[in-house]
């Protein structure tokens, strides 16, 4: 299975996080919000201007910018 980053998913795509490479304070916050390796994420929608992106994770909805999403590695779940 190939590893891709979270920002390349399409609405409705379901994936599992493999590695969070975000640095700085955002890293901590993402962990706290459930963006940890092993979590299942679904891309729900992108904002009207394309950024940020809304995901469903741990049974709730979380938005993050493309910038952070592009440093979160995932594997697609069929």
């Amino acid at each position: 299975m190939t590893e891709i980053t979270l920002d390349t998913l399409k609405p409705g795509d379901l994936a599992r996080i493999t590695k969070v490479r975000v640095k700085g304070p955002a890293r901590r916050k993402l962990f706290d919000m459930g963006m940890v390796a092993g979590s299942e994420v679904e891309l729900v929608r992108k904002a009207p201007l394309g950024d940020p992106i809304e995901f469903q994770i741990k049974g709730y909805h979380l938005s993050i910018r493309k910038e952070e999403a592009s440093q979160i590695f995932v594997q697609m779940i069929e």
Partner: peptide, 10 residues
Amino acid sequence: PAPFIMEMPP
């Protein structure tokens, strides 16, 4: 600017 990591509450 701080990262945008925000819950979208129901």
